[in-house]
Write a protein that binds this DNA or RNA. Structure first.
Lengths: 327, 327
DNA sequence: GTGAAAGCGCTAACAC
DNA sequence: GTGTTAGCGCTTTCAC
């Protein structure tokens, strides 16, 4: 077993309370005593056991970010900024992945229930509103990037309806009328919102919505490729494509590049992951302000952790359309 | 405060010891008592506080994987498989990023020192051999993907010298003699090994090594692009390029595609990240067996955690050359 | 089969 | 300014 506070106290010839005071920078310790204690700590290479400390204080200064899948690269950007903000407050961020499995998600949330972490950020979730509300009665959680209807929990997102609306409107402004959409098949809430925005933009421009112009697959690159194959074998293929994620957009671009028919449709993705800038062609996208999202959510979550007065706002951050070669 | 074991005991009319036994499936409890206790737990929605539990048992069943940067996507593959293996043993994996900063790394390792986690896997590290050895005397850690010379710690890697050797040898076999390398500027140990393998392959084939043919930048896509710009403005540009990472290789490919001089060099990257398959052109690569690496390292690490008999082997997993369009 | 009680390492009243 | 002590929530030995 490792060295404990008691051993430090004995060796330094003081009580454990004094050692504890030194550890917590309590000013009520004389400089002389503090010096001796610090030297002893150094000498024994003592590290406080946080299990004891946390048990007593009922806090860990760690926040858990739960990812839906390891492919959610937009989330990594956000976590990076969460980390920076958390550092300022003396908190650490750890990540874990549920691999799109609600059982895993619950298991990870156990770290919250059993007080291994002080709070959790769900970067998209498979839980339903009731479950989320129940958890938030007793624990500090936040939703990031994706709101869940019917929840009353701190949430930071972009407006997905509006983001999609703006993206599609840009395409319309350029004269396109045959605009297809590539969405995800499941009930990912952000996808549904983006579909709504897509339809609204068409309708506001007086373009009739054609169900055949929506392809619903999964999240992956190859789903984008399949989307291309489907859409461009239609009798009247689209001239522009709006995809609910950048990876899907890249899949479309790749297939288009290789197709013999040649003509490259205009393409716009969503999330503006770093790779958009690097892909060939570079991919236009709807950008989430990752830095601001991460900062905002951690700031509010830590405030919630520290106070009885819980903020349950739904904060909407502004998005931006980034135009690159694909559009 | 949440409901505790004591309240469960009172409500169920038994002692805390009995509740604890039920929680731990101790067979010495009568079915009747167990049933009552379980019902009470359900009723009160009681969740054991792991801080108490862990403090007592001195274990948390959580392993921390420390990432060097959020761009290390090959690591995500490995963590996925670590997670699968850990689950079988009742362990959870959490991730955190040091953002290539050894101070952050040490801060994260505090979770190990203060017993918040039972073990840690360093997915590449900025610590030196002495520090690592010292930590491993008292705590269970493992190195993954990158060995550190002079350490005596459980390590699972591929043979980077041989991986690079094989990649370059393949290029030579195809008749190339002007083979450049794109490496990282810093002292990332795997990069150094890969440089060694590169040189050895050339020398074994009787090709003279030309320092001008090595470009050293960072890890990013744009470093790959810069590498291309540098190499292909040399009086005698190479005909093939070996890059120490797939992202770098993609940067080269993109610039090559856009260059007016037209000719695409043969390109091979390293790590075989999923994107290799999706990029345009698809990127040849040296593949690490991510699944096997993750499984092996977690299996051994958990064995170490549970036993006094520490395995400190350096396990080398086989690599594979994956040929795609870029080569 | 069950309960009482000690104790894991730490912090925070409360004394002095 | 420092020490004594209770107790955070849990497990486990030892009685019974």
């Amino acid at each position: 077993m490792t060295v404990t506070i008691k051993e430090v106290a004995e060796k330094a010839g003081v009580s454990v309370a004094t050692v504890s005071r030194v550890l917590n920078n309590n000013p009520a310790v004389s400089d002389k005593t503090a010096k001796i204690v610090r030297e002893t700590i150094e000498e024994l290479d003592y590290r406080p056991n946080f299990l004891g400390r946390n048990l007593r204080k009922c806090e860990t200064n760690v926040i858990l970010a739960i990812f839906p899948s390891s492919e959610y690269s937009a989330g990594l950007e956000i976590v990076k900024s969460m980390h920076e903000t958390a550092s300022e407050y003396g908190y650490d961020i750890i990540m874990a992945t549920s691999y799109d499995n609600s059982k895993n998600e619950m298991r990870l949330l156990n770290m919250l229930f059993n007080r291994t972490v002080d709070g959790a950020v769900l970067m998209s979730t498979h839980l339903c509103a009731d479950e989320i509300n129940k958890i938030s009665e007793e624990y500090d959680i936040a939703l990031c990037g994706e709101k869940v209807d019917g929840t009353n929990v701190l949430t930071v997102t972009v407006d997905d309806v509006k983001g999609a609306y703006d993206a599609v409107s840009e395409l319309i402004k350029e004269g396109h009328t045959k605009i297809a959409m590539i969405s995800t098949g499941n009930e990912a809430l952000s996808s549904l919102d983006r579909e709504e925005g897509y339809k609204k933009a068409l309708s506001d421009a007086g373009i009739e919505f054609d169900e055949n112009y929506i392809f619903r697959g999964g999240y992956s690159f190859s789903d984008g490729e399949n989307g291309y194959r489907y859409l461009f074998s239609l009798p009247e293929p689209p001239t522009a494509v709006f995809a609910v994620s950048d990876i899907l957009a890249m899949g479309v671009a790749k297939r288009a590049l290789r197709s013999e028919k040649g003509k490259m449709p205009k393409i716009i993705g969503y999330d503006n992951i770093p790779l958009c800038e690097s892909y060939s062609p570079t991919i236009s996208s709807v950008s989430q302000p990752a830095r601001d999202i991460g900062r905002e959510i951690i700031k509010k979550l830590i405030e919630n952790i520290k106070s009885e007065n819980k903020c349950r706002e739904h904060i909407i951050m502004p998005h931006k359309i980034i135009r690159r070669e694909s559009f």
